[in-house]
Design a protein around this nucleic acid. Structure first.
Length: 293
DNA sequence: GATTGTTGTGAAGCCTCAGT
DNA sequence: ACTGAGGCTTCACAACAATC
């Protein structure tokens, strides 16, 4: 079977017309280079170079082989060089687990300006903690603090969820919680998940009970939830930062009925003092300052 | 730990060329 | 024609990794 090194040696000999010179460029001894050439010629079944005085001149077969091999070998060497350059310590790839919405709205604008290379993984809080436990990410941004040994959290921010409805919808003026609950229970709801995340919490905090509603649509993407509400498919709850600063066909219902949700940065304690981790945390926190200002 | 296969090195011998 | 230099091939051996 042909050894890839034979090809590289063949190309070096072709370029230098000399086994000795080729051996120098490949950091090998001349006999080793000679053996590579002999092995390749044995494999091909005929001479690739004519030994003319003190030079090696390619035969027709050698020229043909060179024209076919050179682009392929050079392409492979370039691919390897490219891989090496992206593996430099200065370009450390940082793996982050978070929600798609947070990534798009808050982290992405900051990452584009930073020198950090990142790979993002999207998922629910349960999925993110598993990624962190299995060392598949170095940092997560999560709404839940799981008590896992070796993992610690820093408070990041508080986001506010409001009830949203299509801009054209007629929202009645209601004064009592009972009236509001009755009206909301009669609406078509769009939920982020089957277990009614945030909707259930809003109900518990304001109405002191579980919601007795069945979602019309379940859409596990907050941007798509907002689009669906804008299109008149129903009402929902969404974090205010997703729609406050953009032109949307939305209105909020009953402004006193909001629910707050805390976000935390989670990482493994053993990585706490890794410079890249501290840098990405400072980038994330810097974004918070921008949002508040 | 012993065996086996692979790969590279150093040494020796051979060939060719240029200078005398 | 002789001789020294440069270059190639062959052979023996060492180092290393894989396998049992």
């Amino acid at each position: 079977m042909v050894d890839f090194e034979w090809y590289r040696s063949f190309i070096a000999i072709y370029k230098h017309h000399s086994v000795s010179e080729a051996a120098k460029t490949r950091m090998m001894t001349q006999p080793a280079m000679s053996q590579h050439l002999a092995a390749l010629e044995a494999e091909v079944g005929e001479a690739l170079f004519a030994r003319v005085s003190r030079r090696l001149v390619a035969t027709e077969r050698g020229k043909e082989l060179y024209s076919r091999l050179a682009p392929l070998v050079e392409s492979l060497e370039e691919a390897t060089a490219g891989l090496k350059s992206t593996s430099l310590p200065n370009n450390k790839v940082f793996r982050i687990g978070l929600s798609l919405e947070y990534f798009q709205e808050r982290l992405l604008p900051k990452l584009t300006d930073s020198g950090i290379c990142s790979v993002s993984y999207f998922g629910t809080a349960d999925q993110l903690i598993e990624l962190l436990k299995e060392d598949q990410v170095e940092l997560i941004i999560t709404p839940k603090k799981f008590a896992v040994p070796g993992i610690e959290y820093e408070w990041l921010m508080e986001e506010t969820f409001s009830i949203i409805a299509p801009a054209a919808a007629a929202i009645p003026v209601l004064h009592t919680l009972k009236e509001k609950e009755e009206w909301l229970s009669q609406q078509k709801w769009i939920s982020y998940g089957l277990e009614l995340p945030m909707i259930r919490r809003l109900w518990r905090e304001h109405f002191k009970r579980r919601p007795l509603i069945k979602p019309k649509h379940v859409i596990p993407n907050m941007h798509a939830v907002i689009k669906a509400v804008e299109a008149g498919a129903g009402i929902s709850v969404a974090p205010t930062y997703l729609f406050e600063n953009s032109n949307t066909n939305l209105q909020t219902c009953f402004d006193s009925l909001t629910v707050n949700n805390e976000l935390f940065i989670g990482y493994k304690s053993k990585h706490k003092h890794v410079p890249e981790l501290q840098e990405i945390i400072s980038i994330i926190r810097d974004e918070k300052v921008v949002i508040l200002s």
